[in-house]
Design a protein around this nucleic acid. Structure first.
Length: 276
DNA sequence: ATCCTATCCTGGCTGC
DNA sequence: TGCAGCCAGGATAGGA
């Protein structure tokens, strides 16, 4: 669902729309969406803040706020179904699952919906409180550190890629796509991945994520959408994800789906052979 | 250290 | 047509 490329797309879109705006009021319609601070403080603390910057760390949207020379950070993790919406013209977004609503001093609105209620928001003075345990950004980690990280881990490669303390931002889709691109079986123990394959995986992760970003993410079901309601384009470029039973684009073998670490896992049984 | 299970949630889907 | 039951999925906690 929303992974690094999807979150990056939201961040880029949001940045253009809300940077410089000042929050007039905030309203929380589903209290559990707010992790920190207490519900009673969240809306009141947001009020009067000016949006300085919208950025990303892992799968977190990080909004830097200024008020009375104080800087605070409003972080949002979309989890599966969290979605920001901006009002566009007269057409109102579907607010069936509205959880948080912001009104800016210019009268514009920022709405946050989340059907499954798993998304979480934080308003903190130090973003490290929330993102402190995250591993490096997958587009920033160097090849040496990446290989060393694999060697150090006894985990299987797919769960390791999903581990946000190892790398931050990769989720189920991009893990499967990266592993296929590197011709690695998802159950391969990380420490057994050869230097050559590790290099291929490092490259594969970068290419897959960059392609995802350039296509504004993947909209696999009705969930992930850009803040203006548009879909991404990466779902049309999947090589294995959601292609169960369809021919591998590389060798023609039918793509198989199994469960690894409680996640649907798609791979080509010919291109991605298990390691003995 | 790592794995497994349950939990949080809802809408969509299957099967009767 | 209606409805019960199952499933996906990111992160985390607790037990093995």
């Amino acid at each position: 669902m929303p992974e690094l490329p999807e979150v990056q797309t939201v961040v880029t879109d949001l940045s253009k729309k809300i940077t410089g705006k000042t929050i007039r009021s905030a309203e929380v319609l589903w209290p559990r969406t707010i992790s920190k601070p207490a519900i009673s403080d969240f809306a009141a603390d947001l009020k009067g803040n000016r949006v300085e910057k919208v950025s990303r760390r892992g799968k977190f949207i990080v909004i830097t706020l200024h008020k009375d020379k104080q800087t605070s950070y409003w972080l949002t993790h979309l989890r599966m179904t969290g979605q920001f919406h901006i009002q566009r013209g007269k057409k109102l977004p579907d607010t069936t699952h509205l959880r948080v609503k912001l009104v800016f001093t210019d009268g514009s609105h920022l709405l946050f919906t989340d059907p499954r209620k798993f998304a979480r928001m934080y308003l903190v003075s130090d973003p490290g409180q929330v993102t402190g345990k995250l591993g490096p950004e997958p587009l920033e980690i160097g090849i040496e550190d990446f290989i060393a990280g694999l060697k150090r881990s006894r985990k299987r490669i797919k769960p390791l890629l999903l581990d946000q303390t190892f790398l931050s931002g990769i989720g189920n889709i991009y893990a499967d796509e990266s592993l296929h691109s590197a011709l690695l079986h998802p159950l391969t123990p990380a420490y057994k991945v050869t230097k050559q394959k590790a290099t291929k995986l490092h490259t594969g992760i970068r290419e897959v994520l960059k392609k995802g970003i350039s296509l504004n993410g993947a909209s696999i079901d009705r969930f992930y959408k850009r803040i203006n309601g548009q879909s991404g384009g990466f779902q049309d470029e999947f090589t294995v994800y959601a292609r169960t039973g369809q021919p591998c684009l590389r060798c023609g073998t039918l793509i198989r789906k199994t469960t690894v670490a409680q996640r649907g896992t798609h791979y080509c049984p010919s291109c991605q052979k298990p390691v003995r």
